[in-house]
C-alpha cells in the first residue's frame, strides 16, 4: 500500500531523515517510534507532501506521490496532528466537515456521517455546535480523529495523536481506538515516542534514531531479536510489560496445557496478547479464562499460573 524507498530530508546540514526505506501493507498499523528529533514527523509529512523530500521515492497505492496534486493527495489521507490543529473559529461540526466540504459532499451526507462518527467516538451531540476551546483535551483529540476519518480515507497518518493527554485519558482513548471498527480496515502510519503505546497499537514498528531506521519488525521481533545494542537499550525499561504486550496467545498456544473445555461463549480470541489475557483473568472472579483458536477449533481454559509459566517457557526459548 505504502512504499518508501531511500527517503532523505536535509534541512541545511541537518539530516532530519537519512535514507530510510519501509513498507506498509494494506490494513496494517505501522508505528514510527523514536526519541525526540529523530525524524518521525518529517517522515510522516513527506508522505502527504507537507514536506518535499530531498531524495527518495514514496509510492502510495502504486502511484508516486509527487505525480499527484498535493491537495488531492492530502484529501485522500486522513491526518491527525499532535496538537489536534482544530480550527478555533469553526464549530465541532464544521471542523469535522472540512474534508467532505472540500470534496463537495452534499449537506445530508455530511450531516449523517458526522452523527455516525460522533456516536462511534462517544462524543455527545450537544457538542456539535460548540467551539473547540470549550472542549476538554480528550474531546478535542476525538474530534481531531473524527475529522481525519470523516471522508473514510484508506490511509491515516497520525502524529502523536495521544501525545497531549494525561495518562488516564490517554489509556482510555487508546483502548477505544483499538476497538474502533473504522480503524481496523485502514492502513495507518502512526508516530509516537511512547514505547508502550507502540507495542499496544502497532502491527509493526520502525524504531528510528538520528534520521535512520535502526530496526523494523513486529513488536516481538524487536524484543526478542533486537538488531543491536541501540534497540535493546531502547526497550530495556518496562521490558517485562512490553513482552506481555508483544506476545500473543497464538504464539504460545502449543505450549499451553491442553485442558480442553466445552466451548464457552465468553471465550477470547487467541490473537489477544498475554497482557490482555492477564488483565481479563485478574479482573474476573474465576482466576481463569477460556480462549479459542479458530484455526484448529481448539478451546483452552487458562489459569493465571499456567499462563505465567508458559510465558516464561516461551521467553526462554526465544531469547538468544
Amino acid at each position: 500500500m505504502i512504499e518508501v524507498e531511500n527517503l532523505s530530508k536535509h534541512f541545511g546540514k541537518v539530516r532530519a531523515v537519512d535514507g530510510i526505506s519501509f513498507e506498509v501493507k494494506e490494513g496494517e498499523n505501522l508505528i514510527l517510534l523514536g526519541t525526540s528529533g529523530c525524524g518521525k514527523t518529517t517522515t510522516l509529512k513527506m508522505i502527504n507532501r507537507l514536506i518535499e523530500p530531498t531524495k527518495g521515492k514514496i509510492i502510495v497505492n502504486g502511484k508516486n506521490v509527487t505525480e499527484q496534486q498535493p491537495e488531492e493527495l492530502r484529501r485522500s489521507m486522513g491526518y491527525v496532528l499532535q496538537n489536534t490543529g482544530l480550527f478555533p473559529h469553526y464549530t465541532v461540526a464544521e471542523n469535522i466537515a472540512i474534508v467532505p466540504q472540500l470534496l463537495k459532499w452534499d449537506k445530508k451526507r455530511i450531516a449523517d456521517r458526522t452523527i455516525e462518527l460522533m456516536d462511534k467516538l462517544h462524543l455527545d451531540h450537544k457538542y456539535l455546535n460548540v467551539f473547540p476551546e470549550q472542549l476538554s483535551g480528550g474531546q478535542q483529540q476525538r474530534v481531531g480523529l473524527a475529522r481525519a476519518l470523516m471522508a473514510d480515507p484508506p490511509v491515516l497518518l497520525m502524529d502523536e495523536p495521544f501525545g497531549a493527554l494525561d495518562p488516564v485519558t490517554r489509556f482510555n482513548i487508546r483502548k477505544e481506538f483499538i476497538e474502533l471498527d473504522e480503524l481496523k480496515r485502514k492502513t495507518i502510519i502512526m508516530v509516537t515516542h511512547d514505547v508502550q503505546e507502540a507495542f499496544e497499537l502497532g502491527d509493526r514498528i520502525c524504531l528510528m534514531d538520528n534520521g535512520k531506521i535502526m530496526q523494523a519488525g513486529t513488536p516481538a521481533e524487536l524484543l526478542f531479536k533486537p538488531s543491536g545494542s541501540f534497540v535493546r537499550g531502547f526497550l530495556k525499561e518496562q521490558r517485562l510489560q512490553l513482552e506481555f504486550k508483544a506476545v500473543k496467545l497464538n504464539d504460545i498456544w502449543d505450549l499451553l496445557p491442553s485442558i480442553k473445555t466445552r466451548s464457552s461463549k465468553e471465550a477470547i480470541h487467541c490473537n489477544c496478547t498475554v497482557w490482555e489475557t492477564l488483565e481479563i483473568i485478574t479482573s474476573g472472579k474465576e482466576n481463569a479464562v477460556a480462549a479459542t483458536n479458530p484455526v484448529n477449533g481448539e478451546t483452552k481454559t487458562i489459569t493465571f499460573t499456567q499462563l505465567m509459566s508458559t510465558f516464561y517457557q516461551y521467553q526462554n526459548s526465544e531469547a538468544v
Binding site: 507537507l50 491537495e71 492530502r74 485522500s76 496532528l81 490543529g85 482544530l86 474534508v99
Partner: peptide, 8 residues
C-alpha cells in the same frame, strides 16, 4: 498546517 494537511 492542519489546513494544508486536510487538502485545502
Amino acid at each position: 498546517e492542519a489546513a494544508r494537511g486536510m487538502g485545502m
